[in-house]
């Protein structure tokens, strides 16, 4: 079934644009392979957090350089994503450790009961890696949207100061905020539907739900994706406006 859906997707992508569509499809396959290699390295016992950080870098490289091409826009976007990932990884590390959301909640026991739990890998680190990888897509999306829009603003009016550029970057960010939140919300609700039905069947009260491990880990995961998307906005606006002004000064010195 997934194979047929994948073929439909490929045909549609080619319909929109033969060259870009094919590159995008290839990029997705690349990213899937990177993910699987990362997952394998973690399963072999390498430190999952380090794996995830390197993986995030590779993945954003594939999304930005391979699909969109190397230029000043993608360069500033990738810098901003790295800054956000580094800052958030500290927060994620602390939050995952104190809220004990590692591993599986009661709801998943039936799914995992065919496995032995003696795996000798600390699932706290696995959960941190999972949250990091989960937020990379939405963070890259926001970063490239802002850096390319800001670049357009700059090329249309080269007299803008650094402060003005930063301000218009923030304005663009505000515009994409609402729709990005919606994308995340509905992806989350779609995953969440079965869980709510299960809670209802088991007569969970509201209080039981918010203390359960599965609910807590889902919410913390999606919140970090949202925070990644929000915090990348000022950082990209700052880095892009800085780079553009710096470039302009260099050009003037040469001239």
């Amino acid at each position: 079934m997934n194979l047929i859906l994948a073929i439909i997707l490929l045909i549609l992508m080619l319909y929109i644009d033969k060259n870009r569509g094919f590159k995008l499809f290839l990029g997705l396959i690349f990213n899937f392979i990177i993910l699987i290699i990362l997952f394998y390295l973690m399963a072999l016992g390498l430190n999952p957090i380090i794996c995830a950080l390197i993986g995030c870098l590779l993945i954003s490289y594939v999304i930005l350089y391979f699909v969109n091409g190397e230029n000043i826009k993608t360069k500033t976007a990738i810098k901003s994503v790295i800054v956000v990932i580094l800052i958030l990884s500290v927060l994620i590390f602390i939050m995952t450790n104190i809220s004990r959301i590692a591993g599986f909640g009661e709801e998943a026991y039936e799914e995992i009961n065919m496995f032995s739990y003696d795996v000798n890998i600390d699932f706290t680190n696995i959960t941190i890696a999972l949250i990091l990888i989960g937020l990379i897509g939405v963070t890259v999306d926001a970063a490239i949207a802002i850096s390319s829009a800001l670049y357009e603003v700059y090329t249309n009016n080269k007299n803008l100061s650094k402060k003005e550029l930063f301000k218009s970057g923030m304005n663009i960010g505000k515009d994409i905020l609402c729709t990005s939140m919606n994308t995340l919300l509905f992806a989350f609700l779609s995953e969440f539907m079965t869980l709510v039905i299960w809670y209802y069947e088991c007569n969970y009260s509201f209080i039981d739900i918010i203390n359960s491990k599965t609910f807590a880990s889902e919410i913390i995961k999606i919140m970090f994706s949202a925070i990644g998307c929000v915090s990348v906005i000022p950082i990209t606006a700052y880095i892009t406006s800085n780079t553009l002004i710096k470039n302009k000064k260099q050009m003037e010195e040469i001239a």
Partner: peptide, 28 residues
């Protein structure tokens, strides 16, 4: 063209990463 690439990546990572813990269990 410009938006389809980043948008499909958003969905890709939001969904696929949740398979990680089971993968570790299965491989181990």
């Amino acid at each position: 063209k410009d938006i389809m690439s980043t948008m499909s990546n958003v969905l890709f990572f939001t969904y696929i990463c949740s398979g990680l813990p089971i993968f570790i269990l299965a491989i181990r």
